[in-house]
Computed example of a mutant assay.
Amino acid sequence: MKKIGYTTGVFDMFHIGHLNVLQRAKLECDYLIVGVTTDELSIQAKGKKPIIPFQERLKIVESIKFVDEVAPQVNYDKMEAWNNLKFDRMFVGDDWKGTEKWTKLETSFKEIGVEIVYFSYTEHTSSSILRKVLENMYKEQS
């Protein structure tokens, strides 16, 4: 039976860490669906607008050969995502492992046969680090 995988992210300033997560996720499933966070959700949840606009981030992620389908992520309700997409595995960063929210989700997902797979992030590269570097470069030039 075909295993459907699901992962999400903002994917702002797409970098090797993003690519590694998508590649690893695809190795763990037959069909990979990626939720790309909308600008509105990012602003609401993180208090900052992504540098790369949503439609461009969507197109970038869509172009990755490991990605079979892209869906806008308009909220963080993973059960709603499952109801819409019916995935078998969800891939997420290991910084969430053991948190109250994800422990509850593991229990709920287990009841419907969904496995959560935790991946370690690429520590030396992140969009947050890239954002800081850009802000510092901008400050130096002004």
Results as ranks from 00 to 15, higher is better:
1 M>W: 03
2 K>N: 14
3 K>C: 06
3 K>I: 15
4 I>V: 15
5 G>H: 09
6 Y>D: 01
6 Y>E: 03
9 G>T: 02
9 G>L: 02
9 G>M: 04
9 G>R: 04
10 V>H: 00
10 V>T: 15
10 V>C: 13
10 V>G: 11
11 F>G: 12
12 D>T: 07
14 F>R: 00
14 F>L: 15
15 H>G: 08
16 I>S: 12
19 L>P: 01
20 N>H: 15
23 Q>F: 03
24 R>N: 12
26 K>L: 09
26 K>N: 01
27 L>V: 09
27 L>C: 11
28 E>K: 12
29 C>D: 08
29 C>I: 05
30 D>W: 05
31 Y>K: 00
31 Y>M: 07
33 I>G: 02
34 V>Y: 04
37 T>V: 14
37 T>S: 12
38 T>C: 07
43 I>T: 11
44 Q>C: 01
46 K>F: 00
47 G>T: 13
47 G>R: 06
48 K>Y: 14
48 K>P: 02
53 P>A: 09
54 F>T: 06
54 F>K: 03
54 F>D: 07
56 E>G: 01
58 L>Y: 14
59 K>P: 00
59 K>D: 09
62 E>Q: 13
63 S>Q: 12
64 I>M: 08
66 F>T: 06
68 D>T: 01
72 P>L: 04
77 D>H: 11
80 E>S: 14
81 A>S: 04
81 A>V: 07
82 W>C: 04
83 N>D: 14
84 N>D: 09
84 N>E: 14
88 D>S: 03
88 D>E: 10
92 V>G: 03
93 G>H: 02
94 D>A: 08
96 W>V: 07
97 K>M: 10
100 E>P: 01
100 E>Y: 09
101 K>S: 13
106 E>N: 13
106 E>V: 06
108 S>R: 13
109 F>E: 02
110 K>G: 00
110 K>E: 14
110 K>C: 07
111 E>P: 00
111 E>Y: 00
112 I>L: 11
112 I>P: 03
113 G>A: 08
114 V>P: 03
116 I>P: 03
117 V>E: 02
118 Y>M: 02
118 Y>V: 08
119 F>I: 08
119 F>K: 07
120 S>P: 04
123 E>T: 09
124 H>S: 13
124 H>Y: 11
125 T>S: 13
128 S>A: 10
129 I>C: 05
131 R>V: 09
133 V>N: 08
134 L>I: 15
134 L>R: 10
136 N>M: 06
139 K>P: 00
139 K>E: 13
141 Q>K: 15
141 Q>G: 02
142 S>N: 15
